[in-house]
Amino acid sequence: MEERHVGRSGLLVSRLGLGTMTWGEDTGPGEAAAQLRAFADAGGTLVDTADVYCDGDSERILGHLLRELVDRDGLVVATKAAIRPNGRYDASRRHLIGALDASLDRLGLEHVDLWQVHVYDPATPLEETLSALDEAVASGRTRYVGVSNYAGWQVAKAAAWQRAWPGRAPIVSVQVEYSLLSRDVEREVVPAALDAGAGLLPWSPLGRGVLTGKYRTGIPAGSRAANDHFAEFVQPYLDEECGRIVESVVTAAEGLGVSPLAVALAWVRDRPGVAAPVVGARTAAQLAQALGSEDLTLPREIRRALDDVSDMAPPHP
């Protein structure tokens, strides 16, 4: 699998990341092992988790697999913190450092490769949040730091603060939802990340699964939209406007002789600033479809057509 630098940093990752949000709930240890083995065998390196995924079970399962199944040194392990188990945002220095230590314990690691602030916390001064990132790097707990789900101005402010004084840890990544069904980040987040030299790590690059085409004729049993945990998560992308985009993806896929999943993933993977889309598959079979998109590069005409059909209304003013 091809590798890319994350932004203007020296961190190299595979241009497809493995998401583990369902590990420990919808994806059991055996299926998680099959996913990680297939991903590593395909040359994948970036594995993304977070302290709140499945109440920490995602990190526990990943930690076990790093010890028993794959070579940890061959992977780029990324995790996140700033959300308490009760859903409250907390990016205070106290919470973040404690959360990172707990993540390392669950993972069974002395350090992670990338540690990201999961959400922006308006109740905590940004400089306090960023001081925790500095401490994490200085103490060797992580090699690189980034942010997740930040607005454009928040990315710009954080990146500028870190560049303002020598020795601060630069923001190298911005993890954010980005797909053909969710392009609003192109207004401000993407330009801010590009200006800051931070690489984009899109989550839900398949439009919460909708861009696979599985919902064209209804909600199939066993899908996320049929799952109590994820139904509300998927529902916003089942409207008529999103349906038109999905049909365009399906038409492109039929013309190329590939799956809609491959078309949608290749589109976001090759957008400006993107280092690696993070795909969270429920099963190893689903992950295999994503891995099969590695060799696909969309023809310019198809890319332009998808750009047009998914284009956003111009901003006002």
Rank of each mutant, 00 (worst) to 15 (best):
G10T: 12
L18M: 10
T22W: 02
A34I: 09
F39V: 06
A40T: 11
L46Y: 07
T49I: 03
Y53E: 06
Y53G: 02
G63Q: 02
R72C: 12
G74D: 12
V77T: 09
V77Q: 00
A78D: 12
D90S: 04
A91V: 05
G98A: 11
G108V: 09
L109N: 02
V112F: 03
P122N: 04
A123Y: 13
P125T: 07
E127W: 15
E127G: 14
S131G: 06
A136Y: 08
Q162K: 15
A164E: 14
A164D: 12
W165L: 14
P166V: 07
P166K: 08
G167A: 06
R168A: 01
R168C: 08
A169T: 11
I171E: 02
Y178F: 12
E188M: 01
P202N: 01
W203R: 01
P205S: 07
G207C: 05
G213E: 01
K214Q: 15
T217F: 14
S223E: 05
N227S: 15
Y237S: 01
E241L: 12
E254Y: 08
E254Q: 12
A264M: 01
W267M: 08
G273R: 03
A276G: 08
G280T: 10
A281V: 09
A288F: 02
L291A: 06
G292V: 11
P299A: 09
E301H: 14
E301N: 09
L306M: 13
D307M: 05
M312S: 12
